[in-house]
Nucleic acid binder design. Structure first.
Lengths: 220, 220
DNA sequence: AAGAAAAGTGATAGCCTCTAACTGAACGAT
DNA sequence: ATCGTTCAGTTAGAGGCTATCACTTTTCTT
């Protein structure tokens, strides 16, 4: 489960320690945010001295990057493991469940970026994997419900038709692209504000708002 | 402009220094994010020793809180200064312009929160001021364009009708509430992902996506 | 001009990241 | 079985940070 079973005993031990470090890191991040993560504190909690951890992670940034990658991976797994042929509604449900399970993990992926920090290739690859799942869900579903009219995305569709570096597969129609972007941005909009606590004093149930947004995206 | 003109000379001097500190703080945040803000570095850049700044700000958190409050205030001013009777489209335009002007300022308001940090009363007051402007824009505008059908929000409206602690004015119809929430969350969804750089490798123009979202919100 | 209030200082405690030099244990090859 | 290498872990320490304290200097008030 924790990827600590491969090769020589030394490698296994190494992987085990790395996993334990990440475990404590996740706890620390959940408690006080990513900016409060301290290698020193983790080392002490593991019963070893600070510099020892530098055998396992080159620096603090590498540990955080690792956690970001894990978070991405975890989200990609979650949306990919949805039942075959699942649609936008299922995607939304899985996303929300994943986000609520650990809000700091969500922010690791979609939170405020640090200026100058460039996401490594790996994470952008996983990101496009997530996007691929969403695109598949959008393409497989009726582009709009019969009764209700879909929002007019023809102008956007035209633009996307010529700027689809992120979805080069010509089998995916342009309408699916704009739909995927709408799903992504709208769900993120509601989720992000909910997880940030911006709805706290307002009195309504964020789940209702999310559900309404999903309905509007799936054409009721 | 910088609120450094009131009362005794001492108070003026004090306000001036505080403003200068905040100026450097904003620069530092823009360069490396809020988590990299250092009172020490600011002091040195101002030609004084570290502890001197503690005469002006109780601690680092108070400085950041002040910057957050300023950011909120600035956004509230921006949306309030829109021409009288401005609608959702103007609101969206002002919001995007404000966000692009200084992305870190946007994240100060809508970015990843620090667990345990509670926004002071002031900021929530300003937040509701912003919301009031948005509500006014939503209420003043035709609830939906004639041709296109609006998304079905009746279920959400029913919920909001009973949970509108954030908009107790009965003159504002429930439909305006759900519309305001949609505007807020959807614009934030697009803007936040754009500012975070999540669209970077994708090849399309975020402005087009934003414009499409605004069209969909204003019923074309 | 004398006294009070406030601004600024250096010293210091206690965190942190990260490097460097060193010790000790496990491992592979002879 | 032993030797030499490799790797985990240690302490020491440089340099950064927040924040407090005691102290000096400046400035305002009376």
């Amino acid at each position: 489960m924790t990827a600590a079973d491969a090769g020589t005993p030394r490698e296994r031990y190494r992987a085990q320690v790395r996993d334990e470090v990440k475990l404590h890191a996740r706890e620390q991040i959940a408690a006080a945010g990513a900016s409060a993560l301290s290698l020193n504190a983790i080392a002490k909690r593991m019963g070893m001295s600070g510099p020892a951890l530098y055998r396992y992670f080159a620096n603090r940034d590498e540990l955080i990057t690792e956690l970001v990658k894990d978070a991405y991976r975890s989200l990609a797994d979650a949306v990919r493991d949805a039942p075959e042929g699942a649609g936008v509604a299922e995607f939304a449900h899985v996303l929300r469940a994943w986000a609520l399970e650990d809000r700091q993990r969500y922010f690791l992926v979609y939170g405020t970026p640090i200026p100058g920090y460039e996401a490594p290739e790996d994470t952008t690859l996983i990101a496009s994997e997530i996007m691929a799942v969403l695109l598949r869900a959008c393409a497989a579903e009726p582009p709009a419900a019969p009764g209700t009219a879909a929002p007019d995305t023809t102008a956007l569709d035209a633009h996307l038709a010529g700027h689809r570096a992120w979805a080069p597969d010509p089998a995916v129609p342009a309408a699916a692209l704009s739909r995927a972007l709408a799903v992504w941005t709208r769900l993120h909009g509601v989720l992000s504000l909910e997880l940030s606590g911006h709805f706290v004093g307002m009195g309504f149930d964020p789940a209702e708002l999310f559900a309404a947004e999903v309905r509007s995206l799936t054409g009721r």
